[in-house]
Simulated assay, not measured.
Amino acid sequence: MKRTRVTMLVVITAFIHCSIAYSQSGDLRQFPKGSSPEEVGKRVAARFLASPHPNFGRPTPPSVITYPEVCAWYGALAFAKESKDKAMANDLAKRFEPLFGADTGLVPKPDHVDHSVFGAVPLELYRQQKDSRYLALGKKIADKQWGTPEGPHVKPESAVYAKEGLTWQTRMWIDDMFMITAVQAQAYRATGNKMYIDRAAKEMVVYLDSLQQPNGLFYHAPDVPFFWGRGNGWMAAGMSELLRSLPKDNPDRPRIMQGYKKMMASLLKYQAADGMWRQLIDDPASWAETSGTGMFTFAMITGVKQGWLDAKTYGPAARKAWLALVTYIDDNGDVREVCEGTNKKNDRQYYLDRKRITGDMHGQAPLLWCAAALLR
């Protein structure tokens, strides 16, 4: 009897140690029930499909499709592809169909980075559905981003940027490095034309040289010295999306990879014990914010999966962040503690006082990106 008790104690102790090791591991393949990428992605994507076109939290419909919806739509399409859910992919295509007809006015004019990113959705739909209408629309938007400056958002410096081989929509906000690179990377994936990915890479280097600080993080803009969470998230996600498709022989790839790894190393230092990152990354008084955390998690998952980052170092951080994020999803499939839409402002309190929203597409999108990346 004594030997049996000793044996049971050894087994139980071993089980506990294994459970602790498993929870602290960097395994990005196996997750507890309810937190797998398949389960989470399906819940959040279903919520997206059931949602009307959002308008930054306002009760009225938007005048055009907003960029947070674009990001969630692209994420849902990526998840549908990686989870091999053809029914979901078809439903996501059906959501787009009215934009070719009665709702064509909802298609944003490609006159600003926040509008031009819309092109990422039809280009992904083309890749999955092979309908030439999607390619024509997405390619037109990607081409216009490097075309002739026109529209209400043109500024005196727009022509200067265009002459330097950059997009005339350049404005030196870190948000741009997802908005610009997403549509250009998608145009490359859809057409195979290196012109798109090459010019996106050139643009990224300019932003890296202008905005990345010695600690690896990014000011929101040159005149706003704060490390805003989601702003840095756009940068992390943008570099990840770009590097994922940037050819190995591209001359700008080493510089972008250097900037990416420098940022990831810095993020490791600022990750909270519970796996989250803050609204202002380096400010202990700031609150845990889900959209930025989701974007950083996506960037780390992608880096580990692609072999850019050391799996033993970054795998546990990515896993911890993912498991933390899942706890912020409510029964409706909505993510809470999402920072509202935020312009730049040289004021710390401005960032700390931003509203915390539940179900905003800024927060829904990164969860879908992460789910797709975990399956990719």
Rank of each mutant, 00 (worst) to 15 (best):
M1E: 11
V6I: 14
V11D: 08
V11W: 06
I12A: 14
I12K: 00
C18G: 05
C18N: 10
S19L: 15
Y22V: 04
S23E: 13
L28F: 06
F31D: 05
S36F: 11
P37L: 04
E38Q: 13
V40K: 02
F48K: 03
P52I: 12
R58M: 07
P62V: 10
C71D: 13
A72G: 11
Y74F: 14
D85L: 08
K86F: 04
A87S: 11
M88K: 00
A89W: 03
D91C: 02
F96M: 12
S116W: 01
A120G: 06
K130I: 10
A136Y: 02
G138L: 09
K140I: 09
P152L: 10
V154C: 03
E157D: 13
L166W: 13
T167H: 07
I174R: 00
D175A: 11
A182Q: 13
A187R: 09
T191H: 06
Y196M: 06
Y196R: 03
A201I: 02
E203C: 06
M204L: 04
V205Q: 09
S210G: 04
L211G: 07
V224S: 08
F226H: 15
M235C: 12
A237N: 04
M239N: 11
M239W: 04
S245P: 00
S245Y: 14
P251S: 06
R253V: 05
Y260R: 01
M263F: 04
G275C: 05
R278C: 05
L280W: 04
P284D: 07
P284Y: 07
E289N: 08
F298D: 07
T313F: 00
R319P: 14
G333C: 12
R336P: 04
E337F: 09
R348Q: 12
R354T: 06
D360R: 03
G363F: 04
L374H: 10
